[in-house]
Design a protein around this nucleic acid. Sequence first.
DNA 1: AAAATAAAGGTCAGTTAAAGTCAAAAAACC
DNA 2: GGTTTTTTGACTTTAACTGACCTTTATTTT
Lengths: 158, 158
Amino acid sequence: MARLSDVIEQLIKELIEENNGCAEITRSELAEQVNCVPSQITYVLSTRFTNGQGYLVESRRGGGGWIRIRRISNSTTAEHYIMHALNAMGEQLSQQQAEVYLKNFVDYDVIPRPVARVMKGGLSDQALNRIDTGLRDFVRMDMMKNMLMCFILGSASK
Amino acid sequence: MARLSDVIEQLIKELIEENNGCAEITRSELAEQVNCVPSQITYVLSTRFTNGQGYLVESRRGGGGWIRIRRISNSTTAEHYIMHALNAMGEQLSQQQAEVYLKNFVDYDVIPRPVARVMKGGLSDQALNRIDTGLRDFVRMDMMKNMLMCFILGSASK
DNA sequence: AAAATAAAGGTCAGTTAAAGTCAAAAAACC
DNA sequence: GGTTTTTTGACTTTAACTGACCTTTATTTT
């Protein structure tokens, strides 16, 4: 018997498919549709729609809030290249490693220099200074992955 | 379901655009137009048209009162615009505020869309999830400032 | 002139409608 | 039998929206 989470996963994927790579839902509505508590939607999103799996999840709380899930198309070389790198990246990222990656992306013409420059600024120790060193590299990695996904999705829709 | 606040924001922006960088409204009239209470206009102004976001809001009460919203530094360069924003930015930045800034930067051609998109990804709660909520908005601001500085420096050296 | 009235905008605390968090219970899987 | 995954729900946070009450300014009345 299919697990509820699988059903939800499937449903979201269909929505994405039908909708050109982008699903926009309301957590509570979707929850009601499949008859589960809202937080289970959150669970599914966090386990099956991660950056590493090629998805970007954005959301907004408060009145009129929503959740948007987008999938990369993986059709251009840049997308391939970045997804490949992203999957090889692991959980933590030092400033130095970040710079190496960015340099490669620029050298191989995968990311334009101005974009890389801004990314570098955001990923620098200077910017992340207030974060505990034990946590910093994890956050930096989350940021890197999310920024890369945003970059890919942006250039796709352009 | 478009949020009323968004409609109001858009409306005001159009007025500003049509009118050479300066919109003059009457709070209650605008409120009636979009069918909301007057104080919601105030709410929109205070969340999306702050000084730091490049606007100057003046008003006059009493009979024949008005509210005037002007874009600051319409004619200056991107670097000026960003420097002004940087100066007016405090210590903390929520995801929502970050998005308002970025939207403005793009709308006013101060930062190219792909760069803004990547910034948004890095500044999102999604990416900064592991940081304690008490600290998160401080870090986000540090990042924003750093990225903006990097952007300016980059475009200078070209 | 002074007082009263009308016509604006300002403030702020409270309500509603969303999403997020987290840990415990239940189920599924070795 | 123990471990991992799923499911649940109580509680938190955030953003939008509302309304009652306040302050300021202009106009009208006396």
